[in-house]
C-alpha cells in the first residue's frame, strides 16, 4: 500500500486573470504524513490548498488521489457527486473561521452527526453515542451536546469543527490556519489535541499556516511559498534549522523570541 502516494499533485497552477495564485506546484503526500505549507499572506497557500481540495478549479495541472480500494483517480475527472462524497467521507476540511465549517444554528451533537446521517446512518441512538464519544475526544463536555456552537468559545468551536470532520474516519484532512485567532494557551491545547489525533488515527494532513511553531509541532515535511511559487521544501526540522533560501532564512529569523 505504501508504494503509492495518497495524493499526487502535479504542476498545479491557478491564475486570477493576469495574477498568479500559485504556479506549477508539484508534490506527493504519503499515507500518515503531515505536510505544512508556510509563507506570508498572499503567497498562495490558501489558493493551493483550495485547488488540491477541489474547492477551487485549478487553471492547469492535475491532482490524483488513491481511493480506499487502491485505485488512483484524477480528482478533476471525477463527477461532482463523487467529489462531494469524497469530501464528506474520506476527507476533512478544517476552516480558519469555525463559523465557515460548522452549522452555527444546530446543536453540537447534530454538527458531529451530520456526516454520519449524510452517509446513511439512520439510528438516532447510535448517532448520538458516536457524537458524544467524539465530543469527549476533543475535550468538550458531553453535557454540552445539545448546545449550539454559538454558545461555545473560539477554542471549543475549533475543536468541535475537528470532531465534525473526523467522525467518518477520513484519511486526509486539510487545515487552513487551524489556530488562527486563538490565544496562545488555547493554541497549545489545540495543537496537542491535533497531534494526538493525527498520531492515533494515522491521518495524513495538509496544514496551511503562517505560524512556524505550528509547522514545527505538527508537520513532518514543509513547503515554503512566496509569490505563488514553492521556493523551498524538505523535512520540517531541516528547513527550520538550516534554511537555504534567503526568504526562508528571513522568515525563520523573524520569529519572536520570548
Amino acid at each position: 500500500m505504501n508504494d503509492t502516494p495518497l495524493l499526487k499533485v502535479s504542476a498545479v497552477s491557478k491564475f486570477y486573470g493576469q495574477r498568479i495564485g500559485c504556479k506549477e506546484v508539484s508534490f506527493d503526500l504519503w499515507p500518515g504524513e503531515v505536510l505544512a505549507i508556510v509563507g506570508e499572506s498572499g503567497s498562495g497557500k490558501t489558493t493551493l490548498l483550495n485547488c488540491i481540495s477541489t474547492r477551487l478549479m485549478p487553471t492547469a495541472g492535475s491532482v490524483e488521489y488513491t481511493m480506499r480500494d487502491g485505485t488512483v483517480r484524477d480528482l478533476y475527472h471525477m463527477s461532482e457527486a463523487e467529489r462531494r462524497f469524497l469530501m464528506r467521507t474520506d476527507w476533512g476540511f478544517v476552516h480558519q473561521n469555525p463559523a465557515d465549517g460548522l452549522r452555527m444554528t444546530v446543536s453540537a451533537g447534530a454538527n458531529v452527526g451530520e456526516r454520519l446521517m449524510a452517509v446513511g446512518d439512520r439510528h438516532y441512538g447510535n448517532i448520538r453515542a458516536t457524537a458524544s464519544d467524539w465530543l469527549s475526544r476533543v475535550e468538550i463536555g458531553v453535557d454540552r451536546i445539545d448546545d449550539a456552537p454559538r454558545a461555545f468559545s473560539g477554542g471549543m468551536r475549533q475543536r468541535l469543527q475537528i470532531a465534525r470532520n473526523l467522525v467518518t474516519g477520513p484519511r486526509l484532512v486539510f487545515m487552513d490556519e487551524p489556530t488562527g485567532g486563538l490565544d496562545v494557551s488555547v493554541q497549545a491545547r489545540l495543537l496537542d489535541l491535533v497531534r494526538g489525533l493525527v498520531n492515533d488515527l494515522g491521518l495524513s494532513a495538509i496544514i496551511v499556516t503562517h505560524d512556524l511553531a505550528v509547522a514545527r509541532l505538527l508537520s513532518h515535511r514543509m513547503m515554503v511559498m512566496k509569490d505563488g511559487y514553492v521556493i523551498e521544501q524538505g523535512l520540517t526540522d531541516r528547513v527550520l534549522d538550516d534554511p537555504r533560501e534567503p526568504y526562508t532564512q528571513l522568515l525563520v529569523s523573524s520569529i519572536l523570541q520570548v
Partner: peptide, 18 residues
C-alpha cells in the same frame, strides 16, 4: 440533484435531542 439528504435528518435529530 446529487441526492444529498443528510441535512433533512439533521433537522429530525435536533427535534429528538430537544
Amino acid at each position: 440533484a446529487l441526492e444529498e439528504y443528510g441535512l433533512m435528518h439533521v433537522k429530525l435529530y435536533e427535534d429528538i435531542a430537544y
